[in-house]
C-alpha cells in the first residue's frame, strides 16, 4: 500500500484522463483486500471463486471507470460491481458450489475433531461458530445474504446497501430482517439462552 496520501479521486482522475495504469494498479492494491473479503463472504467461503470474481470486478471497474460519478465512495461502487458479479455467477451456477463447500467444511470438522485434544476451548468454539455462521449464510437467499454482508460485514448504511444492491431501502431492510430470522433458526444452538 504505497503512497496512501494520494486520494482515490486523484488516482481515478489520473487513470481516466491519462490512461494511467499505475494509478489504477494503486487503486486495486488499496481495495483488493476489502473486495476479496466481501466476495469470500458472499461465496460462503469459496476463496478461489471469490478471487476470480474479484478479478472480474476490477476489470469491470477499469472498463466502466468513466461511469463512476462520485455519488458514492469508490469502495462502495466496487462493492456494487462485486455484488453484481457474484449475483450473475450465482444465478449461472444455481449455487452448485454449496455441495462442494459442505464437503470442505465436513473435512475441516473432521480435522477439528481429530485435533480437539490439543485445541484450546475458546479458540475451537470460535472456529466452530465461524463455520456454522458460514454454513448458515449459505442457506440464505441471494438477496438476504447480500444485504446481510453489505450491512454487517461491509458496515454500510441501509442507504449505501440499497445503492450497492440497486434496490429500494425498504427491500434492504426486509432482506436483512428475513435473513436474520433464518440465521437465528440455523444458529439456535449458539443463542445465549440455549447454551
Amino acid at each position: 500500500m504505497s503512497s496512501p496520501e494520494v486520494p482515490d479521486a486523484q488516482l481515478i482522475a489520473r487513470a481516466l484522463v491519462g490512461d494511467d495504469r499505475h494509478a489504477f494498479a494503486e487503486l486495486v492494491r488499496r481495495h483488493q483486500s476489502s473486495v476479496r473479503a466481501c466476495l469470500r463472504k458472499l461465496t460462503a467461503g469459496n476463496h478461489a471463486l471469490a478471487d476470480d470474481l474479484s478479478q472480474e470486478t476490477f476489470v469491470l471497474a477499469w472498463r466502466n471507470l468513466k461511469s463512476f460519478r462520485h455519488e458514492a465512495r469508490f469502495s462502495t461502487w466496487l462493492y456494487r460491481i462485486a455484488t453484481n458479479c457474484w449475483l450473475a455467477d450465482a444465478r449461472k451456477r444455481k449455487e452448485e458450489l454449496l455441495g462442494d463447500r459442505d464437503d470442505a467444511v465436513a473435512d475441516e470438522d473432521a480435522a477439528d475433531a481429530s485435533s480437539s485434544d490439543t485445541a484450546h476451548g475458546d479458540h475451537a468454539r470460535g472456529a466452530a461458530l465461524k463455520l456454522d455462521l458460514e454454513r448458515a449464510m449459505a442457506v440464505l437467499s441471494e438477496g438476504e445474504r447480500a444485504a446481510i454482508v453489505q450491512c454487517y460485514h461491509n458496515d454500510l448504511t441501509h442507504e449505501e446497501a440499497a445503492y450497492v444492491l440497486d434496490c429500494p431501502v425498504g427491500t434492504v431492510k426486509t432482506h436483512v430482517l428475513r435473513g436474520k430470522q433464518k440465521l437465528k433458526l440455523a444458529l439456535a444452538a449458539w443463542a445465549p439462552d440455549t447454551n
Binding site: 483488493q32 474479484s54 476489470v59 472498463r63
Partner: peptide
C-alpha cells in the same frame, strides 16, 4: 492479485 488484474485489463 494486482498483477493478475493488470494483466487482465
Amino acid at each position: 492479485f494486482t498483477a493478475r488484474v493488470m494483466q487482465a485489463i
